[in-house]
Amino acid sequence: MKLVLDNIVKEYDNRVLDHLTVDLDDYQSIAVIGPSGCGKSTLLRLIAGIERPQSGLIRVGRWSLVPEQIAAYQKTIGLVFQTHNLFPHLSLKRNITLILEKTRGMDKQTASDKADELLKLLQLEPEKDKKPAHVSGGQAQRASIARALSTDPELMLLDEPTASLDPNLTHEVLMAVKKLRSLGKDFIFVTHEIAFVKSFADYILFLDQGKIIEQGSVSILDHPQTEKLNSFLKNVYYD
């Protein structure tokens, strides 16, 4: 996958992303790490096209994230948030089939088969008819991964998918994500789980205060070149 960030600036009340520039090609799984408030979730929202930068250009794969292309681009991505964001009044399965039927024009049977297949892949078959409030946080989060996969996205964006889960459920969800590698999709994800980054990512961006401090392959985690990454790694391990 190609990921180009050209001089990205994003400000709310203060500057969150400060002239980010990155030019990556051919990585399948890019991890964005950094301390809380470093701008990593904002970066993911920009890459998802949910928000626009004040200045700079973003290119993902064959798309330039300009207003005319965003709607078409968004049909090719799957997004998983920090919290599950399933529609609370619909069952896990209906959360998937509704989107397939109404926004992808699939007929009922095909949508149902597709949902069953994905819920099975994420080991949610017994829970498929339950509403989000009646399953565990980990199950709901896995269902939202299933939903994100249902539209056959080329790129999956995961924004701290385990942030709201306890360690057991975190493990459960991360194992589910690992299984997805075999699906041949590209991933960009934000997480605090360094062990997961090591086993899943093939490129790492380390952000602090809206700037990229270090980047490279997984080996930068074992041999940090900067004091900031060094102290960040120490902190997350002792969290």
Binding site: K75, I77, L79
Partner: peptide, 14 residues
Amino acid sequence: IDTQQFIVMDLYGF
């Protein structure tokens, strides 16, 4: 209704 639900609706093009 949680604003993130609206983001999801936007993303899928409802």
